[in-house]
């Protein structure tokens, strides 16, 4: 039951972070929130037994892709119009 509660909690938090990442106008914040989203996804997959996928997502999604996004946004305009 505890695991199910964790599952539900992560799933709801995923929706919240996904909406937040697309809602904020500061793109650096969006990238950071997207990193949080990736890490929650990683937790969810680890909880579902897909350890390899979770490991890959932790390194790739939460690590490298966030860094690459931030590195790109530094060279672009930081504010977005929507």
């Amino acid at each position: 039951m505890g695991l199910e509660l964790l599952n539900i909690f992560i799933l709801l938090l995923l929706v919240v972070t996904a909406l937040a990442a697309l809602r904020v106008r500061d793109l650096i914040t969006a990238a950071a929130v997207f990193g949080v989203y990736s890490f929650l996804m990683c937790l969810l997959w680890a909880e579902m037994g897909a350890v390899d996928v979770a490991f890959t997502e932790a390194t790739v999604g939460a690590g490298v892709s966030t860094v690459v996004l931030v590195a790109t946004i530094f060279n672009l305009k930081r504010k977005s119009n929507d």
Partner: peptide, 9 residues
């Protein structure tokens, strides 16, 4: 979304 970075996210 109109911003291309937002589209990518």
């Amino acid at each position: 979304k109109r911003n291309l970075i937002k589209k990518l996210i």
